[in-house]
Amino acid sequence: MKKKIGIVTYLRSNNYGARIQGYAMYKVFKDAGYEVEMIDVDYPKRYYKYCLGRIVGHSASLKEWVYKYIVAVKMIRFTKRYLPATKHLITSSTDKMTDFVNSRNYDAVVCGSDEIWSSRTKEIAPPSIYFLPEKIQAKCIAFTPSANGNHTFTDAERKWLKKTFENYGYIGVRDKLTKRLVESIAKDSTPDLIFDPTLYTDFEKTALPEKLTKSRKKKIAFVFTRPHNDFPEELLKRLDTEDIECYSIFTLVKNTTFLPISPEQFTCVFQEFDIVFTNFFHGVIFSLKNQTPVLGFDTFEKYLHRESKVKDLLTRLELPELFRSYLKYDETKLEEIATWTKSVLSGEQSYDFTDNLRIAYDVLDDSMKKVKEVIDEESTI
């Protein structure tokens, strides 16, 4: 009989990365030979802010709201189509969530990927279901969670986290910041530093908009969340755009064509572009997977004080030259980026990311071998 795995993640966030990494988590464990189920739980405030509120709150105009509504519908359909899940439980009680998880009789419960260990709001700070409370009656595994947020914990929270981390059979985290967090709380813990599961997953190609695939012009894509400090508009002023088609994904950028694509299309749309500019973590990942030149950006001031997930990713993949920090208008940086863009579009500069992607695949492959050993070992729980 196949062992049963439950996965705790941000299943319903209206964000390409959240939806696709959820699918990647599911596929990684299903392909490993397990029966897999997504645990569909939400805290009320987080659900209404990131799952429902993101459509309206992150839209600068009615036109963009309509686009984002279309995208949100496609994201919901994607999750329903590909991810077997429990019933949806919304509650502010971690104990009720824990009881719900225990009622499913899992052999192991996995938390990850995404920023599920971020403590940016009180609701998801410890004790929360995303850290897998000690009362869970199954083997506990952390597979690529991230703590990309505020990490100031009270003494009581740190004590709770220490017991929780020590209860895990395996911990593999997505970035150096999260690794340091675990090590600072559970001194004897040695979490593995691994990569996002989307780098370990093959995705099927799907049909893309004809206006994109039939064009023979050079194509640039901007994949940004707000704020992006008017970088796209300023860059376009420095390029000869008569022979360039410019597109935007997720956030509408002036003087570009918005693509309200589905998560399935997001995984392969980057193959159609000659260059991608993005501050999306998964925008960087899928550009690399589609062998498309990309610049990954930091555009938030919080990254003045700590390394961002984009910089961490590109550094560990031995591609630090593709990272840029752009927090405010900077003429020198704009000119440098414009020069780089022209060299790529002209064919003067080219990239092959095969060896870089192999780094991530090998790390994740080794990690999954350790995870399988933990799951397949006879349980004493």
Rank of each mutant, 00 (worst) to 15 (best):
S13F: 15
N14L: 02
A18K: 00
G22D: 01
A24N: 07
Y26T: 05
Y26N: 13
V28Q: 04
F29H: 09
A32K: 08
M38R: 03
V41S: 07
V41T: 14
R46Q: 08
L52K: 08
R54S: 15
G57W: 02
S59N: 08
S59Q: 10
W65C: 03
K68F: 05
K68P: 03
K68H: 12
K68S: 03
I70V: 12
I76Q: 10
T79M: 10
L83Y: 01
L83G: 01
P84W: 10
P84R: 10
I90D: 06
D95W: 04
K96S: 13
S113D: 00
S113V: 00
E115F: 01
E115I: 06
I116S: 13
K122P: 00
I124E: 12
A125R: 05
P127W: 03
F131S: 00
L132V: 07
Q137L: 11
A138I: 06
F143Q: 06
T144V: 09
S146V: 09
G149Y: 03
H151A: 02
T152M: 15
D155K: 15
D155N: 13
R158E: 14
Y168A: 05
Y170T: 05
R174Q: 12
L177K: 14
K179A: 12
R180W: 05
S184V: 10
S184P: 08
I185F: 12
A186Q: 04
D188Y: 02
T190F: 03
D196E: 07
E204M: 10
E210C: 11
T213C: 09
T213P: 03
K219G: 09
K219E: 08
I220R: 07
V223C: 14
H228I: 09
L235A: 08
L236G: 01
K237D: 11
K237A: 04
D240H: 12
E245A: 09
Y247W: 02
I249H: 10
I249D: 09
L252A: 15
T256W: 02
I261F: 14
S262L: 11
S262K: 12
C268F: 08
C268P: 09
E272M: 10
E272C: 14
I275S: 08
V276C: 11
T278N: 07
N279Q: 11
F280Y: 09
F280V: 01
F280W: 02
I285H: 00
S287K: 06
L295Q: 06
D298G: 05
Y303M: 12
Y303N: 11
Y303E: 12
L304F: 00
L314Q: 07
T315Q: 11
T315F: 04
S325Q: 14
K328H: 11
Y329W: 04
A338M: 09
V344T: 05
S346W: 13
E348Q: 12
E348D: 11
D352Q: 10
F353E: 07
N356L: 03
Y361K: 15
L364E: 15
D365F: 10
D365W: 08
V371W: 13
V371C: 13
I375G: 13
I375H: 13
D376L: 08
D376C: 01
